[in-house]
Nucleic acid binder design. Sequence first.
DNA 1: GCTATTTCTTAAACCATGTCATTGGAGTAA
DNA 2: TTACTCCAATGACATGGTTTAAGAAATAGC
Lengths: 202, 202
Amino acid sequence: MNENLSQASIEPLLNYFDRLILLNKEEIDLVTKKFHPRLYRKRQFVLQEGDICTQFNFVVKGCLRMYKIDEQGTIHILQFATENHWIMDLGSFHTEKKSELNIDAIEDTMVLQISYNDLISLYLQASKFDRIFRVLIENSFVVLQNRLLQNISSTAEERYQSFLDIYPHMTNRLSQTQVASFLGITPEFLSRLRNKLSKPKS
Amino acid sequence: MNENLSQASIEPLLNYFDRLILLNKEEIDLVTKKFHPRLYRKRQFVLQEGDICTQFNFVVKGCLRMYKIDEQGTIHILQFATENHWIMDLGSFHTEKKSELNIDAIEDTMVLQISYNDLISLYLQASKFDRIFRVLIENSFVVLQNRLLQNISSTAEERYQSFLDIYPHMTNRLSQTQVASFLGITPEFLSRLRNKLSKPKS
DNA sequence: GCTATTTCTTAAACCATGTCATTGGAGTAA
DNA sequence: TTACTCCAATGACATGGTTTAAGAAATAGC
């Protein structure tokens, strides 16, 4: 992560949008003006509990996580965001109320950010972005709904297997503690699952 | 549920939209043309596993549920939809692939439906609907995310309490089997929870 | 208004997962 | 080196939740 912020490329974001709906010259200019690059160091907070979420974050390089800390201090991970994924507390963003969630960097991470006001003005200046963000949220919704379904209908072992199937690469970038926290189980139990699954059969 | 379909009122839907973003005369006409009322009898399917979800459903009166049946035949309820709520398999709707989910009526239910093609043409004819549906999906997304958070971080007892808090009225309309299936526990265990919670303390 | 079917409750045995405590290894900082 | 922290593994034990079964209560169908 040694790029210079000022020359940071907005290309990945433009490519992302183009894959949904083609942008014209004006719209490309709007995106270029309203999104700003920002670098977060490993362990740095992007959003901290009690603050209002004022930015949409698009990850260009690296990995962020969003999580809640419960009364006992346990971390529950709602979402990871790697390259070409979005992350924010949508509830806090729209209601402008304090967030109960944290977002921080698992690796040094480069994001492209747009503020609430800029996003609203983006919608007003080019209604194509209403459509783009509608589609984008719809896709996230489907992913989330599948995950919920898994959670209410599957055992921890099935969820872990399915995690490996869907995100085979992630397993290298995350500690088992992170994976366990995402699956909704304890690290100890995940360790046992792995042990069990590594043995052929018995 | 003795209304005549042909005189069924589209008012609730117009009110719903107006509460998000005010509609002008043209847009009201569009909605009136493209949404069609339909009555489902208790137990009747709105969407059946293996079919493609081709309709957005807005519930005017009654109650629908969306669920998956697993290999053992157990039902897992993803969502209920009562008055002024939407229900559909968004994944199947957009990919036009077969759905793994079922939607059926828990009570006799009146919905207003819009087909895939009509919705697309609605977006094209009035881009305000891109914004309306973006906001609508965003709201659903936040609800879903909170539920997922509950599921990975809370015990069944806490989830049940929270269900009672958030949907106090629903408890009258649903059998405990339905509630248990929504919470992701067995009806037997829910019964035990209820018994435990009804006793003052001990 | 009666019967059949579904739903609710209770309880005992059982299994999935959590808790707590311990150990060892890898990475980092003096 | 030493010390420190973080993470993974493992064992003993505790708890949450399921399974199975059976009876009581409510509801649907005739």
